[in-house]
Amino acid sequence: MDGALLTARSLGKRFGGLIAVDDLSFDLHEGEILGLIGPNGAGKSTTFNLLAGALAADGGAVELDGANLLGLKPHQIAAKGVMRTFQHNSPFSGMTLTDNLLVGAHTRFQSSWMSVLFGGSAARDRERELRDHAHELLEFVGLAEWQETEVDNLSFGQGRLLEVARALAGEPRLIMLDEPAAGLTLSEAERLSEIIRGISARGIAVLLIEHDMRFLLPLAHRVVVLNFGAKIAEGQPDQITRDPAVMQAYLGDAGMSRRAERR
């Protein structure tokens, strides 16, 4: 497929004898929501870490808009417009929500020390601009009310939304969400779905790891299924749910045979 924003080709990662990611290739387009699913230990988070530069890949190629990402450090990848959230909330404590988002916007400052210390309005204008943008994003995820509150006062669910808003503050072209709905109540998860649709509507590509199929399937445009590090299926959500290889991966051989017996 041409016109892909992100292309991953033959990604591989081993931990000793364990093959965590095995010859994985996929494309991701602007504004597309791609779900990455698979049983525990299938290599989803490892794939994230390879794309984000948190782990070094053993082989393969990753390009964003034709520019290589593989081998870059996490902060360089963020600067190229790939932002991520973590499986566990990791707010910068003791800071306000707005300041957390401004750390997310770190790569958007582009002012030197000297201009911070001695420069007049340019650095201060940029600061104000990005602060306003942070407030808009907090509005977008529904946390505007708490913008000057310290993050330590947020509930777990609000913390999940803050993670998303903080990643958006970096003005990414691709946002990678690692189980964003884990631990959310039903209504919180519904709100998160709306937010993710909103992100996609802004033309930002979304790569989504998720366990909860009821959350993922109505949301994703396309799904890639991993098992033991390898891609076993790829397609639209309704195709995936009928795929025998996927069922076997999720239910196991025993599950398959029990299903067969019942027939």
Binding site: A52, A54, K73, P74, H75, A78, A79, M83, R84, F86, S90, F92, S93, G94, M95, D99, L102, V103, G104, H106, T107, F109, S111, W113, V116, L117, A123, E127, R166, A167, G170
Partner: peptide, 29 residues
């Protein structure tokens, strides 16, 4: 005080709190 209230100070605090997350936000730790 001036640096503390700029991107530099926020990056320093972010690193103090969680270097891996700070790096993912684009901070050169």
């Amino acid at each position: 005080v001036r640096l503390d209230h700029s991107w530099f100070g926020r990056a320093c605090r972010a690193i103090r709190d969680n270097p891996a997350t700070a790096a993912a936000m684009g901070v050169d730790v």
